[in-house]
Design a protein around this nucleic acid. Structure first.
Lengths: 233, 233
DNA sequence: ACGCAAAATTGATATATATCAACTTTTATT
DNA sequence: AATAAAAGTTGATATATATCAATTTTGCGT
């Protein structure tokens, strides 16, 4: 565990790497956040927050990529989302039971700010537009889960894998060629299948010339074909 | 379509059938709700709100039972929850895009109040404890979906069907014997399988003496055995 | 009470998917 | 560089699940 942390030397004011939601804060509120945050660096693979633990802070991912996943039955996991900078991470525990309902793990070296939950809530109370943006962000998250529920239960494997790749393409990298940050195992967790099945589907995609995987890089040759596979299910 | 509606003669104040969340309102706020609500009766089978439509109101189910489901791919549906009186129904559209992201259908004759969304939001702005209760309610909903995501993707059919029955038992009726409000088709939508599979699993449960279905009644003889099946997956 | 339409049921079959076991490649460690 | 450990791959097989087609039951309107 090498979570070397620091009382950030930079202040939040003027910080380029805070999550967009915090742009709704005024100077005073930002100072409050500044005084009640902890900045921590994580190495790839490290656990940022563990499901089930007490939620003392909310998170802002400043740099790096992370996976947010629910630890389910017998060691199996469902990845809810991949987080890219800069993103806010709260979750349903904030106003329900003050617990984390998912685990967050760094996929690459990452920098994260932890903002004291009570301070966050206090600011939320007094700033209407901040509160509304928070709700918008939360709601977007919820809709993502709705979508996952539908496509994980109603599509079959090729469609689910196509969706996983398109998710990385459309939401994370916006490029047909991107670093393969997820292992086959994680890709399986993202598309609700076994590792072996994930490997086989990817091999099929590769044979058909839709994608190419090499040297930790994924290249999508035919995004439209993938979209079609996604549609067909 | 026999949605005969009425400007309710009773006022909200003192109404015994409003959703618990509204108990956080003061008299004045309640009057505002009163002046901006519509009370509608639905017959079993009627659609209360349709996925994709503009969200002009939030709902309070005063009596009757309803199903909340997402219309997914090629006519397939996923039931998110069964709603019993008295319950508030909002959804992620409130602060995101003002649309309904699920369809609500009456399972029995029902009475529903539609509260103007803008008025609802205005009150939320000015009443902190109401806002927090709203967030708690919303978060509870979200956690329900998390759970469904996990058990629908990580358990196999017997476990999923056991969960569906236990859901009705634990959350809706709190009795080992209850009216079978869901068709086999709907039970299948609740446990993410085909109708035929649902029938077969139920037959197995019945053969093993775990449940009995007759005359629109479901009786759970061995709740603990069902819990075990749920656990095993 | 009759007849129709919808829902439920059934067994046979096809398909999708997981599991298993063996093996290869990659990555990390000493 | 050698070795171990982890990740990835593969084909064979078993299992879970959906689909299909035929049949029965139930509910409903006249």
């Amino acid at each position: 565990m090498s979570e070397y942390f620091e009382k950030s030397s930079r202040s939040c004011e003027g910080c380029q790497c805070m999550a967009p939601i915090f742009s709704f804060l005024n100077k005073e509120e930002l100072k409050l956040v500044d005084a009640n945050k902890i900045h921590v660096n994580f190495k790839a693979g490290e656990t940022i927050k563990k499901q089930g633990t007490f939620m003392s802070h909310v998170l802002s991912v400043n740099s790096g990529l992370a996976k947010v996943y629910i630890e389910g039955i017998e060691g199996r996991s469902s990845i809810l989302r991949i987080v890219k900078p800069t993103s806010f991470i709260g979750g349903p525990g904030i106003y329900f039971d003050q617990r984390h309902h998912f685990t967050i793990t760094a996929l690459t070296d990452s920098a994260v700010c932890f903002i004291n939950l009570q301070v966050f809530k206090d600011i939320l109370k007094g700033n209407q537009s901040f509160a509304e943006e928070f709700l918008r962000d939360f709601s977007r998250d919820v809709l993502r889960v709705y979508n996952r529920l539908i496509f994980l239960t109603q599509k079959q494997m090729p469609g689910r894998m196509a969706d996983a790749l398109l998710y990385l393409h459309d939401e994370i990298f916006n490029l047909p060629r991107f670093p393969m940050i997820l292992s086959r195992f994680e890709l399986a967790d993202l598309s609700a299948m076994s590792r072996e099945s994930a490997v086989k589907i990817l091999r099929d995609f590769q044979k058909e010339g839709l994608v190419k995987i090499s040297d930790h890089e994924m290249e999508l040759f035919d995004v439209e074909a993938l979209r079609k596979i996604s549609r067909i299910g």
